[in-house]
């Protein structure tokens, strides 16, 4: 079993005194779907960036147990964002965006409801739900061990939300990928997660003053 561990994480923006995260510990196993609930502006997205290695300027320790990290070219903790349209290169057709990560089989494309003709489209020619399917597949490289899903279905209608989660969960189980489901939708998180944590509870050194 592989485990992603963040110990006593502290974070504040450069030049400011106010801590956003302090003394926060969280872990994620590779066979686990864990929910993280918190208020807007509470630091959820910042924590996601730290866990996925996008934000290096933090206190504390981030490590992955028992994982061979010799492969420096690929980040085994993949982050999926709320707005897929902001994560696709507008100058690339969809095929190129996918190919950058891995060679996706037709079988998987079909499973995710992606029509082959979409591969030749530009990002602005697809809807949010269609684009989000691409950004999820892109993150499902065979080397991926953990997914950090930051509000990935918030902008989608309820039917599409179910489609995406059911697929993602079955694929994660098959490949032993751990998922951190970050959302403020308690109903959703309770439905799909094995375990739920509240940001307030693990970030207890910070008292919110919004």
């Amino acid at each position: 079993m592989v485990e992603l561990k963040a110990n006593k994480i502290g974070f504040r923006y450069g030049g400011t005194k106010k801590w956003i995260l302090k003394n926060l510990s969280i872990s994620l196993k590779d066979n686990q779907v864990k929910g993280l609930i918190g208020e807007s502006g509470g630091g959820k997205s910042t924590l996601c960036k730290i866990l996925a290695g996008y934000e290096g300027n933090f206190e504390g320790e981030l490590k992955i147990d028992k994982l061979n990290t010799n492969d420096s070219k690929f980040n085994q903790v993949q982050l999926i964002f709320q707005h897929p349209e902001r994560t696709m290169n507008p100058k690339w057709k969809m095929k190129q965006s996918l190919d950058e990560s891995w060679e996706v089989s037709d079988d998987i494309l079909e499973k995710f409801g992606i029509k082959k003709s979409w591969l030749n489209r530009w990002p602005n020619e697809l809807s949010g739900g269609e684009l989000q399917r691409f950004s999820i597949i892109r993150a499902l490289n065979p080397k991926t061990k953990f997914l950090i899903a930051d509000e990935i279905t918030t902008m989608l209608d309820a039917v599409t939300q179910v489609q995406i989660w059911k697929l993602l969960l079955s694929m994660a189980k098959e490949r032993k990928i751990g998922i951190l489901v970050v959302s403020h939708d308690k109903e959703l998180v309770n439905e799909i997660c094995d375990e739920v944590v509240y940001l307030d509870d693990i970030n207890h050194d910070i008292k919110y003053n919004l």
């Binding site: 739900g129 599409t160 179910v162 489609q163 309770n190 799909i192």
Partner: peptide, 21 residues
């Protein structure tokens, strides 16, 4: 479709309906 939308909510069964608009 309205029924599908309603039943897809987590509190109403989280039921799967295939296809895209």
């Amino acid at each position: 479709y309205t029924r599908a939308l309603y039943k897809a909510l987590p509190q109403n069964g989280f039921q799967l309906f295939e296809g895209t608009q």
